[in-house]
């Protein structure tokens, strides 16, 4: 019984940590620019696919990963510079459409530049499962968990103690006031895209050994990450991570104890439930204004 429960929990935590990492990217961008970036899942795809193909080209893993993350960050910068900035005044609907367009464009490019097959990546420290009270855990899951904690701590420090981080927070609260105080809001927006693209790509590298990677891998992961961000309260980075874990565990428990057929519905039922009954998310942030 306990072993079974633990196994579901491990599965939920691993998947949930991935959703959380992706949700974090949504939160960072939303905070800085009020944009919901539907291309977030594609950053995950770029991270994984670029690493695979750089390694195929003969690069060892660490520089391949570094290059892939840098590449994704560059794509993030391009999207902010030429997608979001040039369309100033496009409004909420317009910005959503631009990022959706970017996600389709990136997926199309990935299929042409790379290919349409699915590819594995080697795990960081092997595939020998660790046994815990009758349940098993892959070492890669521990790496994902560790990365999540490090990133969380890093972001906390960044937002609380660095000048740039503080500027980003100020811009999130009131862009106009921040601008008046000398914060370059445009730079903040670009930085938020670069940061969340890098986070997404890192997630892509970490999950590829478990999930494999392919040109369309970002679609479902992106939507689940989006669910995580909403559940956690849009624009709340810690909430996004917690939201990811909630969604991941809910899915694993549904698959484990109820019916696996309905597992995928869970994330979206949670979205609807949260929106209808607690629009600030489970972990709050007074963002949703009543009209």
């Amino acid at each position: 019984m306990l072993a079974e429960f633990l196994q579901f929990l491990f599965s939920g935590l691993t998947v949930g940590a991935v959703y959380g990492l992706i949700g974090l990217g949504f939160a960072v961008i939303y905070n800085a620019s009020n944009v919901i970036n539907f291309a977030q899942g594609e950053f995950v795809m770029i991270g994984g696919m670029a690493t695979v193909f750089l390694m195929k080209a003969g690069l060892p893993m660490p520089p391949a990963v570094a290059l892939a993350i840098a590449g994704a960050a560059l794509v993030g910068w391009l999207l902010a510079r030429f997608g979001i900035e040039t369309a100033k005044g496009a409004g909420v609907v317009g910005l959503i459409i631009i990022t959706i367009g970017a996600s389709i464009l990136l997926r199309g490019l990935a299929q042409v530049i790379w290919d349409r097959n699915f590819h594995p990546l080697p795990s960081i420290s092997g595939d020998a499962p660790i046994h815990v009270l009758g349940a098993t855990l892959l070492p890669q899951s521990l790496w994902i968990g560790a990365a999540l904690i490090v990133i969380m701590a890093g972001l906390r420090h960044f937002f609380a103690h660095t000048r740039t981080g503080k500027a980003m927070r100020a811009a999130a609260i009131d862009p106009l006031a921040a601008q008046l105080m000398g914060v370059d809001v445009r730079r903040v927006v670009r930085l938020s895209f670069v940061l969340s693209a890098a986070l997404g790509a890192l997630a892509g590298v970490l999950v590829a050994p478990i999930t494999m990677t392919y040109a369309n891998v970002g679609v479902m992961l992106g939507l689940k990450g989006f669910a995580a961000a909403i559940v956690g309260g849009l624009g709340n980075p810690l909430g996004a991570i917690a939201g990811g874990l909630v969604v991941g565990i809910a899915e694993a428990m549904t698959a484990g104890y109820l019916s696996s057929a309905w597992k995928d519905v869970v994330a979206f039922v949670i979205i609807l439930f949260v929106l209808l009954f607690m629009p600030n998310g489970l972990f709050g942030r007074a963002e949703a204004e009543r009209a």
Binding site: V93, A227, I230, F268, V269, L272, L276, E289
Partner: peptide, 24 residues
């Protein structure tokens, strides 16, 4: 309930609803 909220919320709710319909 959803249209009482602003901005992105209808996008999210309709997105979730559409996906639930397709899974069902």
């Amino acid at each position: 309930p959803i249209l009482r909220l602003r901005g992105h919320y209808l996008a999210m709710a309709t997105l979730g609803m559409g996906i639930i319909i397709s899974i069902v």
